[in-house]
Write a protein that binds this DNA or RNA. Sequence first.
DNA 1: CGAAAACTGGAAAGCGCTCTCCAAGCGTAC
DNA 2: GTACGCTTGGAGAGCGCTTTCCAGTTTTCG
Lengths: 368, 368
Amino acid sequence: MADRIFRRSAGHERKALSTSCYNFGMQSQRLPTLEDVARVAGVSRATVSRVVNGIRNVDPQLHELVWSAVEQTGYVPNRLARSLVTRRTGTVALVVSDSETHDDDPFMSRFFADPYFGRVVGGLMSVLRPAGVQLALQMVGADGHKRLVGDLRNGQADGAVVLSLPARDPLPGLLADARIPAVLIGRPADPVPISYVDLANETGAALAADRLAARGCQRLGMISGPADVPASQDRITGFRRATARHGHAWVPLVNGNFTRESGEQAMRLLLAEQPRLDGVFVANDLMALGALLVLRDAGKRVPEDVAVVGFDDSSAALAARPALTTVRHPLEDMAAEAAKLLLARIDDPAARISSVIYEPTLIARQSA
Amino acid sequence: MADRIFRRSAGHERKALSTSCYNFGMQSQRLPTLEDVARVAGVSRATVSRVVNGIRNVDPQLHELVWSAVEQTGYVPNRLARSLVTRRTGTVALVVSDSETHDDDPFMSRFFADPYFGRVVGGLMSVLRPAGVQLALQMVGADGHKRLVGDLRNGQADGAVVLSLPARDPLPGLLADARIPAVLIGRPADPVPISYVDLANETGAALAADRLAARGCQRLGMISGPADVPASQDRITGFRRATARHGHAWVPLVNGNFTRESGEQAMRLLLAEQPRLDGVFVANDLMALGALLVLRDAGKRVPEDVAVVGFDDSSAALAARPALTTVRHPLEDMAAEAAKLLLARIDDPAARISSVIYEPTLIARQSA
DNA sequence: CGAAAACTGGAAAGCGCTCTCCAAGCGTAC
DNA sequence: GTACGCTTGGAGAGCGCTTTCCAGTTTTCG
């Protein structure tokens, strides 16, 4: 608060209500309702409702009359009232589940600052917006699960896209039990009857290993994400498997937590353990950025001395010097697909659950 | 779509409904309502409502009885129905207004990928979440303004935090006219009777100029944001004014659009125009990152040959090499303050509108 | 030309909740 | 024993909308 310099209070007078708001005798606070429009048009509420919702068989003349009354009164349908009866809200929730952390955990700010979050939102929006569907952001901790499911069940939102951060999150299971239309981004740790989109993480990691092997790297290392999240595990498995295939019996591994700082720290550890390292696979670009900095500071040339392959192809990859060779994670597309799956499921709740796995590709740049 | 490899349809059987959902004779789809709870507890709806909302004067014994009935039925209040009558939704909208662009504009994906968006969301959430308020994301183009205001007026949300992208956006004015509680992040281009939080951009730019001057830079340049957004204008004004004070009659300036790519391009232009440049102020860190890359590729040492000062102190600043000297923009704090202002205004709509201007500080690192 | 089919528009019953009355119950004082 | 104030719980009227049912008005065709 020390950096706030002044608080200005400006008392501007209020302008008159928007001109399109026609008031016939009622106090100006009330908004026009269906009833008002009906009165102006001289028809019944039901007719106005039909016209506004574009439903069958209304005399074109009346149709016209109603629309002009709508125009005249500045009527806007009340979504709440409508949702209450139709049981449709035109909203989906983006649930960020962090069952292990608590309210003011700094982890959250890290999470939002990470391009990951923005890319997901952007991808979702690209589908949701044209469909006229809103996105509501819901963060829940472990304590909020029951409440969330309750709210969702009685029409807070039509469905949910779930970003499940912690390993072994019970939320997907609860959602499935409650039969709430939902799609996960990233597969659940335990098998749950719920749709999801995911990346073939193992394949991606193998791609990285192949690249390193093709360069002739002999002494490999890996910087992974948290050991308990599925995506991390898959990347580790994929990398291990592929390096084994290339004849490496054992590859040292250090865990990070997907932040740049943790990447720096991990790289230092790795370097201490294996000073002659000549190739490293880092489980995301942000950590790779950190690794690059440490290597540079340690006097290692990239890629001549040490080759580095990242993961994600986030904007950070291009900003790195040397530009980062990385595994492309089409997160926007995946989020968009999640939105489509969810919309389809909302449309037909009986639809079979289905999952889509995206195939990663290697983006070759300078670092490896 | 080429990278999607397979679509798996898994037909898991559905588990039974959550155990806590007690059904007494009604078809299993119906959720328990207040009425049901009342019946189980043997009291009236009104009483249950009072208990659930924690309102005065209920016999402790009944109180207990009602809660156990709630437990037993698995009752969760329906927010929609409640909102319909209370005219409170417990939701605020984060409105991203981009009146100039259209639906599938790639600009949007850039916007979401930018740390800016995430930092704002994180800041808002830090206040909203403890207050039990939800955040709904609303993107509107110029065509959607009327609709948005209408929805907001009749209870779609209790208020709005507005991220106004285009210069001269009419939205703030519409919001003010409709008397919708709203807070802007970043001052409006035209004076509008609406609260906002902003950064003292001029001061920040002056800080950068002073730093460059203190280093003894003689041939300065600036890379700015889009010429028509207020924040950009202020940074330009501030920088010009301060450099003039330091005796520089004219400083070459190139516009970018706040992306790293545009920063690279702008730096190239600047370098072409003034090859002996020895100090540059870049209006945000992302562009500064691009500038750094170009300088490096041009064989210039930073800060020895050219000093660079960025703006924002985003995570990119620390990831740069050399680490970026930059002007700190406390965006999270500002967003949090915006949320507080909004909440206060929702609580008391008659409150005077007030604005808070934050003071930037210079973060000295290696680049200048 | 009359009856059945097709179409139109209105009345009214809710959706699930809150909250204002109002009546009943109870204690105290005269 | 009656009058008065106070607490407590219930009945019921909506909030603004959709939608079923039904009556009235065509149209169609034997």
